[in-house]
Design a protein around this nucleic acid. Sequence first.
RNA 1: AGGCGCGUAGCUCAGUGGGAGAGCGCUUCCUUGACGCGGAAGAGGCCAGGGGUUCAAUCCCCCUCGCGCCUACCA
Length: 945
Amino acid sequence: MGLLEKNFNPKEVEDKWYNYWEKNNLFTAKTDSNKPPFSIVIPPPNVTGSLHMGHALNVTIQDILTRWKIMSGFNVLWVPGTDHAGIATQNVVEKELSKQGLDRHKIGRQAFIEKVWEWKAEYGGRIIHQLKKLGCACDWSRERFTLDEGLSRAVREVFVRLFEEGLLYRDNRLINWCPRCHTALSDLEVEYEEIEGKLYFIKYPLTSNTGKNEENLINIATTRPETMLGDTAVAVHPEDPRYSHLIGKTVELPLTNRKIKIISESSVDPSFGTGALKVTPAHDFNDEIIGRLHKIPFISVITEDGRMSGDAGDRYKGLDRYECRKKIIANLKEEGLLAGEQRHLHAVGHCYRCKTIIEPILSVQWYVKIESLALEAVRLVREGNIRLIPNAWDNNYYSWMKDIKDWCISRQIWWGHQIPVWYCPDCSGNGGGLQGNVIEHIFYEPLRVNNNTISGGTYSHLRKAGLKHEDIIKNSKIIRIPKEVKPLSQRQDIEECPNCKSKDIIRDPDVLDTWFSSALWPFSTLGWPENTKELKTFYPTSVLVTGFDILFFWVARMIMMGSKFMQREPFKDVYIHALVRDLDGHKMSKSKGNVIDPLVMIERYGTDAFRFSLAAFAAQGRDVRFSEKKVEGYRHFINKIWNASKFILNYREFRSDKSSINEYAEQLDLPSMWILNRLAMTAQGINKELSEYRFNDAASKIYHFIWHEFCDWYIEIVKPVLYKGDDEAKKVIVNCLFFILDNILRMLHPFMPFITEEIWNSIYADKTSIMTSAYPSEFPFYTDAEELMSFFIDAVSGIRHIRGELNINPSLEIIAGIKTLSQKAEIVLRENISAIMKLTKCREINIGEDIARSEDSAVTIKNNMEIYVPLGGLLDIKSEMARLIKDKRKTESELSFVSKKLSNEDFLKNAPTDIIEKEREKFNILAEKSQKTSESIKILKTIKG
RNA sequence: AGGCGCGUAGCUCAGUGGGAGAGCGCUUCCUUGACGCGGAAGAGGCCAGGGGUUCAAUCCCCCUCGCGCCUACCA
């Protein structure tokens, strides 16, 4: 390593050092260390994804913590990994297939899953590569994937145990269904969005009378007319005077020949719509509740494809739900049963992955009984085992956990952990098989068998038609197993029914919600269910760093699963950082086109500048509005560090071998003691801020120390010694400079890993990484230096102030005087007189109690010091004033002439535009000049006074 | 509707029960031997508005206005 290059070139050093750290195992945690453990598990990014700003902020924070703790003497493990992201990944691959005119059903489950794995092999490394670009000190030897073998074992173990404990069940109830993704979604996976729809008013004729006049109709409002085909009641409020007398009577459901009852239901809001509610228990969550309460029939009229079912009637069967809506409206109009329509704003649920409008449909799904788990999860936070930071999230957390519903965990997709449950169609024994003729309800929709398209039917129907068991299973598009069929949950795959030994068993085709495996992440990545050393050493993890958007999706569920299966909280702290938004405060999204790519920032400004910006942005409790300007600013900071280091390294020959200043302690001058005290304060401050997750404060402290204290003051002060001092004096200063620089690099390393390593290696030839050095924490304070140095600094600023205000040419050496009554101040000033003179370009400074000052001196008072600069010879105030006043008069008269011209309408109308433009410019220039001369006169006046 | 947060310099934002801050931008000056991605000196703010608590409020409490987010509902 030699002296530093002229400019810092991030691209040249970043990969070099990252490879070096990796090769030397500096990120690798030990399981046999006697250092205290510190561990973080990364929120696993989607394996098919690429790095966005949110990730960048998220992992930068984790990396700062990781490197800080490594250097602070901890045995640190940061577990990296990726998430299989069920629906999202499946959608990506399905899109690829559709480009080739294929879909997953055409190629079959096995082939499709192989395709996804191929996709993963090709693109799954991208996000990992990007994490490395950011400098993440992850332990790559422990990288995990939510679908890898070990994690799959953990998932299965958890599922089977929950099953055995009765915390899992299947139920046929209304769920959020995405007709495009063709799967159930949990409540959290539905996004509500305000949409302008229509409210239709439909007339339902009463059947008790024969005529169809107005009194014999009930007007009903709906936004989804197509669901009326599944209506099984009309509900009214029991005390609604308009309708209460009709309770118990029946109406004829238009467009069908069904008759339905009018029921009394207090949850109906008489003030909405017409006050009468059509009840569609199979397609609306509220209606489902009413339906169960009143034990009215459930009629499913919309299928999983989003089309109308056979129960919708022959007229509508097979129509798309929105086609059907149009047709229904048309038909109602024809029959004179449409009373009207109006525009209506309402929130409609959309699939969070593909934005398709979800459809509530009846379906058999797996659920986790959540109540007992949630209670425990609340307790862990309430009793302080887990801290949410900032704790403003506590209330959100509690209220969500209080109203939490059972978690629907089955998804009708193929990419994910297939549910480890089998059903036996042949078995009539106890404990696992079918009872009676339930088998008739297992419904299949085979697509093709031996290249013949076969229509669907029940299992036994197809068997009778001569199909083989495995062909049915392999080729079916939809397999629905009624909830009456007993499931058999197994730790190992089975080939035959344990009860009747039949080989014709069916595995549950569904896979688990992707968040199910994520929920186990803190312990599954450490080797659970094996009792590994990693688990023993690193569980519970120290801190989880995450955005609030997945607080409930993920964090809450990790807490539940961690406490259930590890009997302990999965992490002690949860640091919840902000969302990265664009400059206008909008969420960054591809569709809005306001996305800033972290890799572009890295390309333009270097990783260190980008990381430091993120840290500086990360104030608690507020969203980040990302601005490129700020990154640019911190690139300047990097340049500053680089140049200061370069400067100091020029004097390396005067550095003693030890990087300690102890041997010079006796010879330190005031500025050196002062800067050492500031270093001590900064180091102490940064450790405190980091331990409280105040990254922005830590960043600004170190920024201020390096730039405005070390560079602006200390280096400037010691320059004369370096240029002209004797070797002995140089030695003291140079060792102090190196000592500070050494500590600056170490303090800065967690924020800026690359540049610090580069400079570090230019200082020290022994090729040890800065990562193996200790993080600065405790230093001796030179508290007295603060007060003494303030005289120095204020004297310099005072003289500079006068020079600046009076515009005294910087090349001009002046005389100044400082009058002070403080003996301390006087001593400080006298001892540092040459440095002060150098910094203020004075050829003489008189110090003392009784300094005479001439009449024309400019004066300023700071820190009980009267600082003055005699102006004799520098400025002739009288003639200067006269000149300025003359100047002012002239300017003002010109100005008034021009402004008259510019307010003359004839001139404005008739003159060529370029002439007018010129006059305007002239006006601006004159106005500015006038302003300036006025100000100068003002300053001169104050000096005289 | 309920809850949470925000409103501080032209812009983006820190911050604190007692003196109003940073970065960028702006003005003036400076080719001083680390750095013009620099240095020095400045201008600019009833800390959203109103009320209260206090010796003292930008900060604590209440209300109003404006903005954002979350949760729930919407036939």
